[in-house]
Design a protein around this nucleic acid. Sequence first.
DNA 1: GAGGGTCTGTAACTAAGTCACCGAGACAGT
DNA 2: ACTGTCTCGGTGACTTAGTTACAGACCCTC
Lengths: 222, 222
Amino acid sequence: MSSNRDWTDAFPPLRQLPAEIFSQLREASLIVELPEGSRIFGPGQAPESFLLLLDGTIRVQQTSESGREIVLYRVQAGESCALTTACLMGYEEYQAEGIAETPIRAVAIPRALFDRLIATSRDFRQFVFTAFSRRVTNLFRVIEEVAFERIDVRLAQKLLELAGAKQQVVATHQDLANELGSAREVISRQLNEFARRGWLRVARGVVEITDRPALARLAQHG
Amino acid sequence: MSSNRDWTDAFPPLRQLPAEIFSQLREASLIVELPEGSRIFGPGQAPESFLLLLDGTIRVQQTSESGREIVLYRVQAGESCALTTACLMGYEEYQAEGIAETPIRAVAIPRALFDRLIATSRDFRQFVFTAFSRRVTNLFRVIEEVAFERIDVRLAQKLLELAGAKQQVVATHQDLANELGSAREVISRQLNEFARRGWLRVARGVVEITDRPALARLAQHG
DNA sequence: GAGGGTCTGTAACTAAGTCACCGAGACAGT
DNA sequence: ACTGTCTCGGTGACTTAGTTACAGACCCTC
């Protein structure tokens, strides 16, 4: 059993709460653990609580009727599912779905308590609105990129993003297509073109970056 | 001078407020009027208050470097600029811009008072979150359509939406392209194709719908 | 009624997505 | 090791969407 020991440390705004609410928070919220691949929420599966992610990554994506997918954003450890919550509070049908990309550990704050936190704590409000704000701003960027950016530029960006500090990205061409809302064949062609230019090497399920600067140059719109 | 006479009638949640806050609301908020075409907010122009729209329409759109535009959503009378506000509260740089499509009249609730309303009134929270929820859900639809829907289907949908009950849409091809984040030539071609099929007639700056059912059939994915 | 601005038409081209199919590699079971 | 199956990637022909670069048509004002 995971105890509620120390998790509030990860969320400074919570430490500012009045003692009474703070103890309610420890009592009423529970720590949930879910295996990789779990569907955290999705159409017709409204979340019943506000999630604070302690460990792991949640991928939020959308699937079209034709089966094509696009990744909207990721929730990382230390962040909250703020958009989900807003939809929860607003009763609206949430269109996207959230998948655990890794095993995850999260705090689930029940709806009623969430409402009380919002009412009570200015810091908590700030925390929630900031999270909203970041997500929405990011959504705007997604729209802009899908609508106006070339696919090679977007692919270069995404490869660098997914690689992080590492030199390789573990993903199939289909996975990359799903990231960008594109089609597998398109990604395959672009990757082969990148490989032909010596920017990377492709193997089954892996892309190994060999010329980061070149990718970066293309990514920032060159 | 517009007095603060009756505007709260348009927003039922406000009527539930405690008398003290309610009178503050009447005092501290002011009614603003702006002419058509005003830029309400935009990049590098953060709104300083929460807006409740009494009359008119605000178009929220995004412009790419290359000059292409896409309409994200519209704020109608009786609604609020909830997304804007979240970004305001969260200090994030707002990427989109808001333009008055008609002369508008709105109530501007200062930031501090907005915060107090959120803290005080459950109904007000519900109101704000619901508005938020609707916008976000709508943004998800925009992403899905831009990413996955055919341009002819999207154009048919948009024409029906813009026409409303009327039989005509007053807009140039460029305007329609900006609605959808597409290019003028593409829209011209599609409109001519629709005209060839007898679904509409095009004139300079006007599209007259002659076969609504046909457009509707295409719009709902046919 | 001339000139300038806005709006639309057109053609040739590039980029992106779709369709249909294939073959190579991985892997499990016998 | 052999075989069947499944996933992954390659390929070519095709359609759709967006781009580039014009040319006219319409409209308003002077």
